[in-house]
């Protein structure tokens, strides 16, 4: 099992293959198309993170002290990036997530997708992931 840092490095290496923006987007779109990210039952309003541009659904559950994240988006590029975020954070302990340093989005040149003007729900999703980690960590302590 890779650490959060290792998975991010792996993604950075994967994206290093692409020089062109279009190739990068094509890869993200393929990732978005491939992934059945979330159980239909979890695609609820409760799990909805509403952006101005696109919607993101995020579901979290604790299994054997690790958080399993599943997610989806109605926009395919957002979905592809959401898939990458899930790949990085899912299946880790709350403490590992709280301590993690997120760098892959910057390094593969997708930081613009985190800008508030994009309002695609990604930024809120990252905040939500952290909130889940904090919530689950207090639960684990109790």
């Amino acid at each position: 099992m890779n650490s959060i840092k290792e998975t991010q490095q792996e993604i950075v290496e994967e994206f290093a293959l692409f020089d062109e923006w279009m190739d990068k987007y094509e890869h993200i779109i393929e990732l978005g198309k491939d992934l059945p990210l979330i159980d239909k039952n979890y695609k609820t309003d409760e799990n909805l993170i509403k952006g101005c541009q696109s919607k993101v659904w995020l579901h979290a559950e604790l299994k054997a002290s690790k958080i399993i994240f599943t997610a989806d988006s109605d926009a395919i590029i957002t979905k592809g990036i959401v898939g990458l975020v899930i790949r990085v954070f899912s299946n880790h302990t709350p403490q590992e997530i709280i301590d993690a340093d997120l760098f892959f989005i910057d390094q593969i040149g997708l930081q613009e997708h985190l800008s508030p003007t994009r309002s695609n729900g990604l930024l809120s999703m990252l905040k939500q992931i952290r909130m889940y980690a904090i919530a689950f960590s207090t639960k684990a302590d109790a």
Binding site: W21, M22, Y25, Q53, S54, A75, I76, T78, S119, N120
Partner: peptide, 19 residues
């Protein structure tokens, strides 16, 4: 999804609005 179209053609220098 309109936002996907907007993002891709932005990379081609074209500014439209989506949402």
């Amino acid at each position: 999804h309109p936002s996907d179209i907007g993002m891709i053609i932005d990379k081609l220098g074209i500014a439209i609005r989506t949402g």
